[in-house]
Design a protein around this nucleic acid. Structure first.
Lengths: 192, 192
DNA sequence: ATCCTTGATGGCAGTGACTGACATGAGCAT
DNA sequence: ATGCTCATGTCAGTCACTGCCATCAAGGAT
């Protein structure tokens, strides 16, 4: 039974994540050392690396949540729906998670765009998300390479829509931009 | 006038690239230090970093060639061809460049798959290629977000086709696999 | 001929990310 | 009590990468 009120301050991971994000915003990513992050979280550098594989990883805590939600959404789509619609519905579902986070997302995106290190890690997360969606589609019975291609297409619509959403002059909702993205894909593939 | 027969052995970059590739194959990527690479090339570590921004970059000399060829191909497509066909033709063009390199590509892919570092850099190269294709399509008059989506789709077909090509049981040509990929995209987007 | 500039290189010290090995000490089970 | 667990601390070490300065052949200018 571990109902531990342990001797250490609770939620070390959370404190590290918070400290890192704050410092990145305050001083910038490169100007922040791992030792800085750990110190602000009341821990040591060595402990940081026990919670996160590297300095970049602390920035991508949300990626796992997004993936879980995406897979849940795919499973929820009834089996007689076409592959295209299944992908569209699932991607719209995770787009919906971003509601009311535009300002936060903008600040985060500013950081990512400013540092090649973070962009690389973001691309890995995107690739992981794509692979997960591919697997989920295969479990629906979609054969290869259609599963990979459909997944790649869906995640592309998500990310391209994401950056458009961040500075959309009309302030449309993310979900609507995604829906429109899928329409564009349909149009392009029909050969206009 | 610089017809310099300089005092240094010629083609330092090439020697570094070759030394790096050989060492990565012999001992593995992580087991090879930058100092090792420089030593084998007859140079110093400091000089390595004057030619390549970091240890990973020396592995991706071919990326620039691929991008140039892709852009050349897009420019060569006549203006009255649909966006989809323009992308298909251009991507098939760079797929054609890989002819007779299957064995080499396989060894290279083994290295990339074995090291997250290299995967990240590969994804950045892919993103750069996608951005370049997007620009080329925009110059053809394709509006956003169709340009981004079509480019993303085309590059996805390329990369997904690439890994299928590497261990295709039927030993089909890369170009044929790519062509088939575009057909699959068409089918998926038409809603099967 | 002498001087000066250019450019690729070497040498060297320093920073910071990351790792391995070992120590510590509160909680929990027996 | 005794011992085990496990998150943490401590420390030394490797390696990627950078800044700064020295070198020294080639080529042009005076």
């Amino acid at each position: 039974m571990m109902l531990c009120m342990s001797r250490w301050s609770p939620n070390a991971r959370g404190r590290l994540e918070r400290a890192a994000y704050d410092l990145f915003v305050e001083r910038g990513y490169e100007e922040t050392t791992v030792a800085d992050i750990a110190r602000r979280a009341g821990l040591t550098e060595r402990t940081f690396f026990r919670h996160y594989a590297d300095k970049r990883e602390v920035f991508f805590g949300g990626a796992a949540v997004l993936q879980e939600e995406l897979l849940r959404a795919v499973d929820a789509v009834s089996a007689n729906v076409s592959t295209f619609e299944a992908v569209r519905i699932s991607v719209e579902a995770i787009a919906h998670l971003m509601r009311d986070r535009r300002v936060l997302a903008r600040e985060r995106q500013r950081l990512v765009l400013a540092h090649a290190d973070l962009q690389e890690r973001e691309l890995i997360k995107r690739a992981t998300l794509t692979a997960a969606l591919t697997d989920a589609l295969k479990q629906r019975g979609v054969p290869e390479p259609a599963a990979s291609l459909a997944a790649d297409m869906g995640i592309a619509v998500f990310y391209i829509g994401f950056v458009r959403w961040l500075d959309d002059p009309a302030e449309r909702e993310f979900v609507d931009i995604v829906r429109e993205g899928f329409d564009h894909i349909k149009a392009v593939a029909s050969g206009c």
